[in-house]
């Protein structure tokens, strides 16, 4: 697992649940890990152990924690860049959904050793999409689910999202686009911050 992922997850836990929760999880697991380095690589098991311990400590299920992590990535202004990178995918929600197939390739362009799961998007009928996300690392599709929910709000679209199939390898998320422009979305400036 790329350090960037674990590092962002640490950020999520610290900001959402507090520093004590994060340090508590690490000390209980007795990992030889004081701080996550964003440019290092970690065994997937490290991430899974942290998630498991966090679920125990917060009395939450792992899937809903991952979904909250996905929501955090889009909605929290302190990680604004993730939202920006995702919004570059499309001018509206449909466009964005199709761009998910490029997500892996695009992120490889930016960070050559960052491997995101494969995603396939099929429009089964008008306004109904099946998003098949590779289950690597385990649970990753639930982060995507949170991201998809939050981005629907971001684009101002009304979308019904649910997991409709799950195997060891893949998770299928079905998205029903009820209204493309349901509400005013969040403002998105295409310009990169800092340039004028």
């Amino acid at each position: 697992m790329h350090g960037l992922i674990l590092w962002t997850f640490e950020f999520f836990v610290r900001l959402t649940y507090g520093n004590q929760v994060w340090t508590g999880v690490l000390s209980k697991l007795d990992l030889s890990l004081n701080a996550v380095e964003p440019l290092f690589h970690y065994d997937d098991q490290v991430g899974l152990s942290i998630l498991q311990q966090l679920a125990v400590d917060l009395n939450r299920d792992r899937q809903s924690l991952l979904e909250d992590f996905g929501t955090f990535l889009v909605t929290d202004t302190r990680v604004e860049r993730v939202r920006r990178l995702l919004r570059f995918g499309g001018v509206d929600y449909t466009d964005f959904l199709h761009s998910l197939e490029d997500l892996k390739g695009r992120s490889l362009l930016a960070v050559p050793d960052l491997h995101l799961p494969n995603i396939q998007v099929d429009e089964r009928q008008p306004h109904r999409f099946e998003i098949t996300c590779e289950n690597i690392p385990k649970g990753a599709p639930y982060v995507l689910l949170g991201v998809l929910r939050a981005l629907a709000d971001d684009f101002g679209s009304l979308v019904f999202l649910e997991v409709t199939a799950e195997t060891a390898d893949n998770v299928v998320i079905t998205a029903d686009l009820l209204e493309c422009q349901h509400a005013e979305g969040r403002e998105f400036l295409w310009a990169t911050g800092g340039v004028s």
Binding site: R81, R84, L85, R106, L109, A110, V111, T192, G193
Partner: peptide, 12 residues
């Protein structure tokens, strides 16, 4: 893609 890269590069 270029905008995406500029953004990602800045973050990195």
């Amino acid at each position: 893609e270029m905008l995406y890269l500029v953004e990602a590069k800045t973050a990195a």
